[in-house]
Design a protein around this nucleic acid. Structure first.
Lengths: 186, 186
DNA sequence: GAAACCATGTAAGTTGTTACATGATTGG
DNA sequence: CCAATCATGTAACAACTTACATGGTTTC
């Protein structure tokens, strides 16, 4: 799913500016999506060209005009047909997992930091999701759909699983790294 | 973490060909990484150019020569310093999550198929991980390191969490889609 | 007074995907 | 006999990231 479709999706929940779309995408749902301004703004321009969204320019003082994008009926149709195709596989690239995979090459100190960071990361994500579940402001201000809640809950389940695992099992990989270092120091 | 570093990492576990590296990366660990031949082969060529790996060509009959890559000491140093930097955030793009997010736009039939597929996907991933935990052949044949086992277990925890969630909670989003359709049909 | 937020956009560069090219072998 | 596996590679293309350009406002 490319950024264009993603933007169209967010706009299906209500009108928004590029800036706001980015907010939604890096909010509680950030664990599933990822898009930078450098991809969002051009995507919106393409969508407007194609008539899938309409733009209303809100003049602002001492600031670039805010452009509010609204999905058109053609946009809704396009989105619907994009969603009809069964979703492709997730594409994930986890630096953390790669680092853990080669954990033997890290010093125990580095490994510990890495695990600490990751645990903090999952904690933060959980908190954001928990907050977002209740507070519409975190999303875009619009109503929270069943789909949103479902995705948020799925995210929470996964973050919690990772968190529990790391907290209870980190000693396994840390012990292995320690042994390795002990050997090297001999 | 780019494909070059990923290849270097796999090679740190033992010599392998490009084809075998792909196998490892799409094996049980496939949920965390992703790389196509089109990125692996050029990456290996660059690594060889830089002297981070050495190549031994095994002539094969009626088949392209098999090239066995072996990490060099310079390669190990490079890998180690790449791992020292604290890992960047995961980059995830989940088509499935996006589809669920806009689940109201799907017919109940499509939604059900989508959820069925996803559940099957998690089941399969779990099975592969379970098998790989015991069987070194699934990885590259070399020894299974503590890091590998750790990552595999983390993957299992996450897949299991997602699976449990989807099985027990799918009715929530399905009910919502059904209501929507009911309204539209009126 | 510094940092973060608001707000948009472009251009250069990196990276990776897809499709193509080639073709024997093995298992169901 | 059809599909999958083994085996490497290139070229065209698509997509995205990063850095740059601009600059007022709010919060600590």
């Amino acid at each position: 799913m490319d950024v264009k479709t993603l933007c169209l999706g967010v706009l299906s929940l209500g009108p928004a500016s590029g800036y706001e779309i980015k907010k939604v995408l890096e909010g509680p749902l950030g664990s599933f999506f990822d898009a930078s301004y450098g991809s969002i703004y051009p995507a919106l321009a393409r969508l407007a060209e194609g008539g899938l969204v309409s733009v209303e320019e809100k003049p602002q003082e001492r600031r670039p005009d805010k452009k509010i994008y609204t999905i058109t009926s053609r946009g809704r149709i396009t989105l619907a047909s994009a969603l009809e195709k069964r979703p492709g596989r997730d594409r994930v690239r986890s630096d953390f997992a790669a680092t853990m995979l080669f954990a033997d090459l890290l010093s125990p100190r580095e490994l510990a930091t890495c695990l600490d960071d990751r645990i903090a990361h999952h904690r933060a994500a959980l908190q954001r999701l928990e907050a977002g579940r209740a507070d519409p402001a975190v999303w875009g201000g619009g109503e929270i759909t069943a789909g949103m809640r479902f995705v948020a809950d799925l995210g929470m389940a996964q973050h919690r699983a990772a968190l529990d695992f790391l907290e209870s099992q980190r000693h396994v990989v840390e012990a292995a790294a320690l042994r390795k270092t002990g050997q090297a120091a001999d």
